[in-house]
Amino acid sequence: MARLLLHRLGGLLTTLFLSSIVIYGSLYLAPGSPENVIFGSRTPSAAARAAVRHRLHLDQPLPVRYWDWLTGVLHGDLGTSMVTGQPVADRVGAGLGTTLLLVLMTMLLVVLFGLAMGLTAALLPGRVDGAVNALTSVSVTVPSFVASALLISVFAVKLGWFPASGLGQGFGGKVDGLVLPAVALAVLSCGFLARVTRNAVRDQLEREHVQTALVRGLPRAVVLRSHVLRNALPPIVTAVGLLTAGTFASTLVVESAFAVPGIGQLTIQSVAQKDFPVVQAVALLLVAAFVVCNAASDLIQAVVDPRLREAGSTS
């Protein structure tokens, strides 16, 4: 188990390091030079341009700049925003809490409703299963931007239950404002998780070891919990891990739709403004969210199923 942990941690750091090179390099391959962002529509003198390029270290070769940036990041210095002049860490930090809360609320909804629907469908074959199946078939085809538009027009505009954009004051106001974005993000994932859960539980219900548990006279609830659900967990955990990582990416769209001041909105703004240091920081953050989610789901699976614990040493 310790070996698997080390193995996963090593993989995580390697992925982050490689993706930091890709992120840093690809932004400078993109058309348009950073100093143009600062000068805007003005045409600077050669001396002014050279001064700015020197200030941004653009007169140095790319590997040197990457190295300076990387050592800065490792010391907690993400650079300064080219647009506002604020430290990048402050800008990212301001939105991070909101986005984490949004992802948390989304995943709570997904796990709660996805598991409930999947379990109901698996345990009640026939009509109930068919109804849930129909529901999830629709829900997995609704992308978050469509859900956002629908939710805003019904619950914010017509019924006025939740704000259509922005967040209220304090933690309560924040949660209140994040309900609709969370639902918009959860719709598709809920359907997906419900299907994964249904199939995983169905598969386990037919396993021979479940018959053994039944024929020993164990109560049905115990058989379901200790044998069916427990053994159905690995695919469900994988799905939750992937969906959580995917939700981080989807916040880009939904935060813009609901004007939520989180990382997603910051990313869209910064890309539009070509605010390179901010884009680099949030891109790296998204990659980190992905690899952390995947590593976490792998570790949880190894806890659930002992047969997966040795996997790390062979791969």
């Binding site: 018959q211 053994t212 039944l214 020993r216 006279g217 200790s226």
Partner: peptide
């Protein structure tokens, strides 16, 4: 099923929960 009858299955590998 608890105390009256006990079953020995053909394939213990499949009939014993592998995760416990």
């Amino acid at each position: 099923r608890d105390g009256g009858v006990g079953l020995v299955f053909q394939d213990p590998r499949a009939h014993i929960n592998p995760t416990r």
